[in-house]
Simulated assay, not measured.
Amino acid sequence: MARSPEERGVTRSAGARGRLLAALPALLLLIGLLIGLFTPIDIRPDAFLAAAMISAAALLPLWGTVLIGVGACSVFVGLMVYFNDLHDAIAYSELASLSAIAVFAAFFNRMLGRRAHQLLQVRSVAETAQLAVLRPVPRHLGHVSLESLYLAAAAEARIGGDLYEAIHTPYGVRLLIGDVRGKGLIAIQAAAELLSAFREAAHDAPDLPHLACRLETSMSRYASRYPGVPGSEIAERFITALLAEIPDEEPVVRTVACGHPPPLLLHHGEVRELQPADPSPPLNLGMLVSDGYHVDLAPFHPGDQLLLYTDGVTETRDRSGTFYPLAERVRSWSAEAPHQLLDHLHRDLIAYSGGRLDDDIAALVARRRSEPLSLR
């Protein structure tokens, strides 16, 4: 997905801040020189020269750090010559201290550079894992246009326990959105397991109840493979999920809710929650299902849109602690194309929360078209 105007604005703002910070060591060096020239001789500029070298180590590449270190020592030597302090033992002691700080700054800069390189490698691996586990959904499947959104609560994160998928099957387009209980590596593993099971079962399960049973079986088997985990953490790792099916030839949408927030149906400016008549428990809690999975049916005509989302959307809070009113907010965007609708939602969530998301967020929009596209 192309970057939103907010993301481009954040990038420009970060670039401007970066340029200002990069100028800080030179500014401190200049302040040290001015203090040395225009203040009484007993006032030393050592603190500003040392601060210039330390800030250079954190903000500049190695060559810049070395240049600032040489500059700081040169400024101090120049002041010694200017004030005829070449025979002052204290001045030489201070020069030695500044030289040691310059060497330490260069060493510190190298260490930071190595850590930054390691972090870059880790983030690269994380992005590769995201593409393998939570890959982008196709823009068009049969009669359906699709768009997805994923926002991590932590700026450094790339993937978590929220998940989604869309597949074109002999029974129409089948959608999945889910949210793994908890966070961390185990949540990511559970999400990957569920996505793998859905991608396999969605093609041949004859209906959504059978598909939900297949997913429940897969997650139960996954949990049983880790009987020795302390506190039975795997066994307690349930997943709220919502399954949807949009047949190619029928203007309807079928849904099965497994402890997940209800989707929103957007129709001619109206927004309606598709509340399940008989909701089922989350996946990996199949022992609580007594009468099987119940399918809910709703009209879904060309131009209608279905918004699936995780609870991170509706549990986003503003500064006063009020939850995000999704149905109310999305009404004014209901006629927009899927990617524009999610762009609006993205910007609005960031603005509503003041840029402080407390949970991961995933959303998936499906819009029915009157004719299929050949592009898959």
Rank of each mutant, 00 (worst) to 15 (best):
V70H: 11
G354K: 02
P61D: 13
L151G: 00
A96S: 15
L141N: 03
L341G: 04
I234D: 00
I31L: 14
D42F: 11
D296W: 13
S374G: 00
S99A: 15
I35G: 01
D46Q: 15
S196G: 14
A91N: 03
G69L: 08
I246Q: 00
R139F: 04
E236R: 14
R114H: 14
E6F: 09
A212F: 09
L364A: 05
P206A: 13
V295G: 04
A91C: 00
I239Y: 04
F108M: 06
A26I: 04
G36E: 06
A102V: 08
D304A: 07
F238R: 04
A126D: 08
L24Y: 07
L141A: 09
P281S: 12
L149A: 14
F108Q: 02
V66H: 02
A202R: 07
L134D: 00
T65K: 01
V77R: 07
G259P: 02
V66A: 10
R19F: 03
D42G: 08
F76M: 13
R3W: 12
G228W: 10
P45Y: 07
L345S: 09
T169I: 11
I234Q: 05
G69S: 15
S334I: 13
E6M: 12
H117C: 07
V253S: 05
F323L: 15
L373K: 05
L375R: 08
E371Q: 05
L60H: 03
L175Q: 03
T255N: 07
L211S: 12
A335E: 15
T322L: 01
A52F: 13
A132F: 10
T316K: 00
Q121V: 11
A129Y: 02
G292C: 09
F108T: 08
P251E: 13
R114D: 11
L37E: 11
Q340G: 05
Q275M: 12
L175G: 10
H339K: 07
L134Y: 11
L163V: 05
F300D: 04
